[in-house]
Design a protein around this nucleic acid. Structure first.
Lengths: 211, 211
DNA sequence: TGCTAATTGTGATTTTTGTCACAAGGGCTG
DNA sequence: CAGCCCTTGTGACAAAAATCACAATTAGCA
């Protein structure tokens, strides 16, 4: 049982209808993740589908030698597509999900999936829209790394960050390098170029992105 | 109405049960695509979910300047995740799907989706498994281009090709270069290396892959 | 058979990216 | 305020990949 009334759920998840919101309110379990806490790690099996009520979750793929590659953020109103996909077959996850800030999540136990799918049209519309959005997002990631050079990829990355975290990004060059799988020096140099062309200004630990 | 009896459908799509197979047999429409024919192109809207009965379909992402990047093949027993995802909202496609050989497809009109989802548990299990498999596949693609060098990517590519098309690959170096978004010369040189190390032998237009 | 187009091989060069080395500065703590 | 760690800047170099140029070979077909 969540602490969120059905009406509030519908505000956060616009695809829900009353019946579904009631069900989720009843059967879902609220949980808070603190910044830095892991929601999901590679190899983990799922017992819950996860809906993000508030906060931000960073999803990234881990390479064999511990590299990491940023994929996207989940925020208010999103759901973790992988938790829903893998759950349905008790498959294990292949990506890492980390609470970026204090994050409130509704966890829906696996045993309700059949009922939800069968009896709540709004639910499977929501599920399908979730998959679609994430698949689309992942395709744009492929575009970037397949077709673009570092300078464009960096701009795209900053833009994406700014859209979810705001224009003033608290990031070190090293963190950026990790996220886009480049090196600190390269990022530093490219940022300098962007600064010269007026697209960013920089302070220690902060990058101000100007669209 | 398809020409495939329900029992045959279950053989091809093991997640189907009798009830579902009957429904698909009744409402699905068989269609043949000739080699080179387009099943789906960027910007196209969907009226059908597509299930592959036989043949092979090549899926690739198109870049802004006409580059193409190979993602994966669909074959017997697979379904096109995108046709199902986008259909649910009549979104347009973002990838290109091309019949690689003569391909038989069952097309299920969009208006049956709600019924299928609600009344056939086997259907949504199938749908979810389809999404999961494709998402997973796309993640491995990201791994490759994010973390690996061309030599490893080429090996991975050849391995993937061999798994669906067999060990004797009718490909020119140029075609490979297009698929992995590299250049012909680079591919030629890397193939020479692989040949020297005994992992492939080459003829004109053919590459014999040795695991 | 002989010509032509497609395919492949390879050296030289350039561009892009990553790595190494080291310096400068900021900010925090003892 | 002294020391230290973290962050950033930058030059020099190395590695990976793309591009350019051109030769050699093969297959198809006129």
């Amino acid at each position: 049982m969540t602490n969120l009334p059905a009406k509030e759920l519908i505000r956060i998840f616009p695809l829900f209808d009353i019946a579904l919101a009631d069900f989720i309110h009843e059967k879902g379990e609220s949980k808070i993740f603190e910044p830095g806490e892991v929601l999901m790690r590679p190899g983990q099996y799922f017992k819950y589908a996860m809906l993000i009520v508030d906060g931000k979750v960073k999803l990234y793929r881990e390479g064999e030698e511990g590299e990491e590659f940023f994929m996207y953020y989940l925020e208010r109103g999103n759901a973790c597509a992988l938790s829903m996909l893998c759950m349905a077959r008790s498959e294990s996850s292949t990506v890492m999900a980390l609470a970026q800030e204090k994050t409130e999540v509704i966890m829906i136990p696996i045993q309700y999936m059949d009922t939800l799918m069968r009896e709540y049209a709004a639910w499977y519309h929501f599920v399908i829209e979730t998959y679609r959005a994430r698949f689309e997002e992942l395709l744009t990631v492929v575009d970037q790394i397949a077709f673009k050079n570092m300078d464009e990829r960096l701009e795209w990355y900053l833009d994406k960050q700014a859209k979810t975290l705001g224009k003033d990004l608290q990031l070190t060059h090293q963190q950026i390098a990790n996220d886009i799988n480049s090196s600190r020096e390269v990022v530093s140099r490219l940022l300098k170029k962007l600064e010269n062309s007026g697209r960013v200004t920089m302070e220690r630990n902060i990058i101000h992105w100007k669209g």
